[in-house]
């Protein structure tokens, strides 16, 4: 098994076998500066119930491991061709430009991923590795000197952490035992029991809300926003101590006119932070790796549209014109002088 971290030993022996709980992990991001306060280790879980058109992490959507191919890193079939010989299903064939082609229908996503394992250059990758909660923690604790000094810690992201609740809960419980601060990023699309269980182990939570218009939300994400909004309100009521920030990716032409709507909505949620995220196109390349089409064409978020969204929000939210901050307590508690400006998610 291939892992982002190190070590071949078992993870820390957790209470009740928590360390052995398996999960499917797309990636572990080290020295992560933009997924919560301080310097963090961010674990991207695999699998998401939504299918947002602009998704910047398409490799985390599917609940199964899937291969990706980076043409630029390939040596070419004449010089190498290992993948061609390795695939037990014959899903890899000779394609154009001396490069292999993958027939994704034939690819059974075999457990051993011969294409990736034999590839000398890393042109073939597999998104989705089975890891135990203990292994995730071991990697994270290896970087803990940075978390401690920065007020950082572990962030669960995805994909959707709530879609692997047992694993998420195990990782958070182990992190709690180790004294790590924890955060998660969620789309809120789960039954409330699951959300409550995972959120109970968190220091703070980013809660993504893409549109307040039910029909539009369905159109843009493939999911219903009623349970998402409902969960948010319930969560607020049941875990009032949890630090919470609602985030909205502002997508040109899709939800960029909803600034006032979000302002009114957030007005009813005092003490909850709000952070609009500027649409960016950095995920575009990953669609190519996965052999998929990027659904956003060449859409760009102009500075004018962005400003309108912010102004609309402020107009209905009221107050002193500043965006509500999700980390007032963090700023007060942070011994390292941590600032409470909102992180920028790239």
């Amino acid at each position: 098994m291939r892992r982002a971290g190190n070590g071949s030993g078992p993870g820390p022996a957790g209470v009740g076998g928590l360390a052995g709980v398996p999960g499917l992990v797309a990636n572990v991001q080290h020295f992560s500066l933009h997924d919560g306060p301080g310097i963090r280790t961010t674990v991207f879980l695999k699998g998401c119930p939504l299918r947002c058109r602009w998704c910047a992490n398409p490799e985390t959507q599917s609940f199964r491991p899937e291969p990706g191919f980076d043409r630029g890193r390939c040596l070419g079939l004449k010089k190498c061709g290992e993948c061609l010989r390795a695939c037990p299903e014959g899903a890899v064939s000779a394609g154009a430009d001396d490069r292999p082609d993958l027939d994704r229908k034939k690819c059974v996503r075999c457990a051993f991923f011969a294409c990736r394992n034999k590839c000398p250059t890393g042109a073939w990758k597999v998104f989705g590795d089975l890891m135990t909660a203990g292994e995730v923690l071991e990697i994270t604790l290896g970087e803990t000197v940075f978390h401690q000094r920065s007020g950082g810690g572990l962030t669960l992201s995805g994909g959707e952490p709530l879609a692997q609740p047992e694993f998420s809960r195990a990782v958070l419980a182990l992190a709690g035992q180790a004294g790590l601060r924890t955060a998660a990023e969620t789309c809120g699309c789960a039954d409330f029991g699951t959300l409550g269980m995972v959120a109970g182990g968190l220091d703070f939570l980013y809660y993504d809300l893409k549109s307040l218009d039910r029909a539009r939300h369905f159109e843009l994400t493939g999911g219903d926003n009623a349970p998402i909004v409902g969960n948010l309100l319930k969560l607020r009521a049941s875990l009032p101590g949890l630090r919470l920030t609602v985030r909205t990716p502002v997508i040109p032409g899709l939800n960029s006119d909803e600034g006032p709507a979000f302002g009114s909505f957030m007005r009813e949620l005092p003490g909850v932070g709000y952070e609009p995220l500027r649409y960016h196109r950095l995920g575009g390349g990953k669609y190519r790796l996965l052999g998929r089409e990027y659904g956003m064409g060449d859409a760009k978020l102009g500075p004018e549209t962005w400003r309108e969204f912010l102004e609309g929000f402020r107009r209905t939210y009221g107050g002193d014109g500043r965006l509500p901050d999700g980390f007032p307590a963090a700023a007060a508690a942070g011994s390292s002088g941590e600032k409470n400006s909102p992180p920028v998610r790239h």
Binding site: V145, Q148, R149, S150, G337, S341, P343
Partner: peptide, 18 residues
């Protein structure tokens, strides 16, 4: 970037000291 970036660099330096 920004004050937040400065604070994170400070944290990084503190960790280097540790």
């Amino acid at each position: 970037e920004g004050d937040e970036g400065t604070e994170k660099l400070v944290s990084f330096i503190r960790a280097f000291v540790d």
